[in-house]
Design a protein around this nucleic acid. Structure first.
Lengths: 334, 334
DNA sequence: CAATTAAACCGAAACGATTCAATCATGGCT
DNA sequence: AGCCATGATTGAATCGTTTCGGTTTAATTG
């Protein structure tokens, strides 16, 4: 039923091997032959079968991308970046969403292994590292996104989270804030842990009190819910720093509903600079991360690694995030 | 190098056919044998090769999802819905983003055909229909998402856009608005055309003036830009209805920057009810669409079609959108 | 003009699974 | 004991490519 390279060969009156050469190394086939094959392919509407190709050649040209929350615009941008570069180099991208659930993460990894992906892009959770080790055992190149690889034979494209956490607090301190709520996600995520280190480090010297709060998932709803605790705190909190914009947006909504005024009653800072932060009720001051670039670069790196084989030099690239000041913060009015 | 079904067979001391049976029809193999094979698989860390499997069996268990803008939370939700159901039935989903660019759409379709996807989920642009026809010619089941199939041998899961457009205008009319700006996307998108029909239809009877505006892409930035035209309009516009929430959010931002007050100076309605609408500067009144459900159902339908073969009954499912009233609209104060 | 060489082309084997007709065991029944 | 039905297992053929050693053709050289 389906037309194969054989049909093309028959119609063009050449051997199958020649058609294969035409497909993969056109320079090796004479122009006249090339034209015949081209015509045959057009006539028959032939499209090569990626599975057969992969099976025989052993190399697959599909790369997997596993993110913890596709709903988060940060990761959407990462995915777009990765997808675009993959597509440019004729790779197929399979995007998987683990919903921050280790079970789902495991399952997706299983499927990706079945697909024999040639490389994996992942923002691993702590628990997910076991699955990643499995990939390693199978010699599938893996690049971490937004999380630094601690092994030297693994690439990563990440952000300096310590610096990000630190600069937010420093900025708030410069505005005169001395009692700051820090709303973090699970410490099992390296990003969260690092940002917290930055936060605590910058607070240390400056006589600043940090009140820690935690959300189980870094989503708007969780931020909304945790706000009650912040409002109930006995510390005289004047500023709130959230581990990402979604949480900050949730906090913002809850604060406004409680009749608070931002930035007068509370200064508020988020993290990521997702598109919606600029158009939020109160445009959000935030620590910006170049999500699209992260995804694009990671994809490029894994493609390089796939194509250059063993003698590939792994890199751990680290970007510095940038403070973007908008309307949700102002100097403390004493 | 890689371990295959053959290695498993050897280690379990059975024939390859038996291992295959174990994998696909476990009931046909005796318990004792089953245990042996299970052990061998565990020992060898065997994972079947999807490509080989697909090549031989002819059926691929990967479905493609092609959306026009993954940045739009509406489509993110669709993708999540489709991804989750696909995953539950052990299908792999390849998510492609065309960026509303027919060239990219064409290219992605090409790749998906190479992958021999067993089914396609797509929100086709007008120009994209040619590509879809190609899929049809190859007997690849295709289900439209958010766009009604006009052929009876094609499934679709869509929304009643006429009704959506109509109910927005009716609601505004009930609030006393008589001069309404209607900001639409390209009419080449069926959704936009249908919503416009609904808008014009409900305006007709009621002595309401509709001023049409158009954006080339339905994104926040485009809404932001078109707002100047709305403000410059000679019609005494008191309400603005946008073809999606992103555009509305852009309009909202522009209006606020121009010192306008919402909903006092302008009532504003969006479309989709993306998550951010509720937490916008001014929580957005909008026409809500069940995006996750759309994606999930579409995936389920295509899976059914794939598994039930030719004698499958195609359905064109149409949901009714719902008006969600929030703070961005109020009765016209004369 | 015979010998040499390079460029094109050929076509069988192999990749890792599934399929299916054929064989083998087992046990129940006359 | 002989026969059959049933269930379990076998293994060769096959899917659509790529690979690669071998063959053909044409051009170049001494």
């Amino acid at each position: 039923m389906a037309i194969s390279i054989r049909d093309v060969a028959a119609r063009a009156q050449v051997a199958v091997g020649t058609v294969s050469n035409f497909l993969n190394r056109p320079d090796r086939v004479a122009e006249a032959t090339r034209n015949k094959i081209e015509a045959a392919i057009a006539d028959l509407n032939f499209v090569p079968n990626a599975s057969a190709r992969h099976l025989r050649s052993g190399s697959s040209r599909t790369i997997g991308l596993l993110v913890p929350d596709i709903t988060n615009p940060f990761f959407t941008e990462v995915a777009r970046g990765a997808g675009d570069t993959a597509s440019e180099s004729d790779y197929t991208l399979i995007l998987c969403n683990s919903d921050e659930d280790p079970k789902k993460e495991e399952r997706h990894l299983k499927v990706l292994i079945e697909q024999r992906i040639c490389g994996l892009l992942i923002t691993p959770s702590f628990e997910g590292l076991a699955g990643v080790a499995e990939l390693n055992r199978r010699d599938i190149p893996t690049t971490f996104i937004d999380r630094r690889a601690d092994s030297l034979d693994q690439s990563s494209v990440s952000m300096d989270d310590f610096h990000g956490g630190k600069s937010a607090i420093e900025y708030l301190a410069s505005l005169g804030h001395k009692s700051i709520a820090w709303v973090n996600g699970p410490l099992s995520m390296a990003q969260c842990a690092d940002r917290e280190d930055g936060v605590m480090d910058s607070a240390k010297g400056q006589n600043i009190k940090i009140s820690k709060f935690q959300v189980s998932q870094m989503r708007s709803q969780n931020g909304y819910e945790v706000t009650q605790n912040i409002l109930a705190s006995i510390a005289q909190i004047t500023a709130i720093f959230c581990a990402n914009d979604l949480v900050a947006l949730g906090v913002l909504r809850a604060l406004l509903e409680s009749g608070k005024s931002i930035p007068k009653d509370y200064a508020l800072i988020g993290y990521d600079d997702i598109g919606f932060s600029a158009s939020a009720s109160i445009p959000l001051t935030t620590i910006a991360q170049p999500a699209y670039k992260l995804g694009a670069l990671a994809a490029q790196m894994i493609i390089n690694e796939v194509e250059h084989g063993k003698n590939f030099k792994h890199e751990q690239i680290v970007f510095k995030p940038e403070l973007v000041i908008r309307a949700s913060t102002q100097a403390l009015s004493k």
